[in-house]
Nucleic acid binder design. Structure first.
Lengths: 223, 223
DNA sequence: GAACGCGTGGCAGCTTGCTGCCAGACTGGA
DNA sequence: TCCAGTCTGGCAGCAAGCTGCCACGCGTTC
């Protein structure tokens, strides 16, 4: 039985003081998972990573950011993410909430954020290899199923209203247009008009493509 | 700064000795993420959980198992999983490799497995709340995107050969059948026969449904 | 070589999907 | 009331998809 190197700090300031050097020590990989961009208010941490990114441009250094959709709420954040992308970082969006920030550096150091408290946020820093490896593989699993920022922004999934979803569900049931229209209580002509509108919104050239998009975007997803 | 409760053990036997009581202490939730079922060879651990499950059948105790597709390799394992399901546990399959076992008990205790070594596997046990919370949310994120075991078994996605995938990709490009057949260098009749075969495999009544299935299963997924 | 199975391609005919056009119904505002 | 805008449904015609049938070529088997 072996004791591991784990400690907690409270507040951003203390984190920078006690673990700031870890950020600057990043050699090969910097992974960051978070709900939104409101996390690293401390300019020091951002600057450290930015310098690292700039210094090791084409030397195999990889940086990956994993965020939830709320991170794209306002234009300012989206602009920031585009900037991050230009710096060479990969950005993906996961549909999961991701309430706790996760940072992995060189697969050797891990920082997990706890809840907000009156005295500041609590961070836990560890270099325990099994812990880091385990969280790294979990991060990788989420990363694999997340969608790239560009494709996420390009797809206009959220613009579907309740009516569109209804059409989508009927379409997904596999009925012919005639049966579907009858079930919805509308005419064949109108049903097909709706389908055409839907396909236009999804930028699909064929019904197969429309189904594909719908499936990828998980629109009729079960809870 | 606070030191956290973290320790590592080597080998299943030592894990049972030092952390076995934690398994039996499960009150509300038992989460388990793993690559396959070859992990808990120790009957004690299995028995402890099984008893817990039986004892607290309808008292709000939830048990969730998250596995990779390789766990379904042989019939014996699938039978075991069906048994686990009957006991009330939820089982989902994630397309990610999940090389490190992850166990979360009551959102208070976490056990992460490291690599196999000659002297046995290394396990890290911790009750640090930020660490447990962080890993719990990561687990939840993977769980959300994973597919239920039953639907996974029901869908015959992996039975698609390279030829089927080629048809799928062409179909996904949005071309008409005539153009698609020309691009593939086969006749229109053959192309449509392939599409019909594909739809039969996907159990789709319409091309839209076929696209939907393909999208949900992530068949033409980018690496 | 004959018989067989299998995959392919052409043809034909049917069903389904798609859309332009027009007419009617409804709504809200001048 | 009248008008404009919007949504709807029927009709017609074309395009696309679907499939049964038959013929051909190819490799295997007896």
């Amino acid at each position: 039985m072996r004791k591991e190197q784990v400690f907690s700090v409270r507040g951003d300031a203390e984190l920078i003081t006690r673990a700031g050097h870890l950020f600057e020590s990043a050699q090969a990989e910097f992974l960051c998972g978070a709900r939104d961009l409101r996390t690293w208010s401390q300019p020091q941490a951002r600057a450290a990573i930015r310098n690292r990114m700039r210094a090791t441009d084409s030397t195999g250094f990889t940086s990956r950011k994993l965020l939830s959709p709320v991170a794209l709420a306002d234009e300012e954040d989206r602009a920031h993410l585009r900037m991050v992308q230009r710096k060479g970082a990969a950005v993906r969006i996961s549909s999961s909430p991701m309430p706790h920030e996760t940072i992995l550096i060189d697969r050797r150091v891990m920082i997990l954020a706890g809840r907000h408290t009156p005295t500041g946020r609590e961070y836990t820093v560890t270099t325990s290899q099994p812990l880091v490896d385990g969280v790294h593989s979990l991060f990788q699993a989420i990363w694999d199923t997340a969608t790239d920022l560009n494709t996420y922004l390009h797809s206009n999934a959220p613009h579907l209203d309740a009516d569109g979803r209804l059409i989508l569900q009927t379409l997904a049931s596999g009925l012919t247009d005639a049966s579907a229209a009858k079930r919805l209580g509308i005419s064949l002509r109108t049903y097909r008009r709706r389908v055409a509108d839907l396909m236009a919104k999804l930028e699909a050239d064929s019904r197969f493509q429309a189904g594909l998009r719908a499936g990828e975007l998980g629109i009729p997803r079960k809870k």
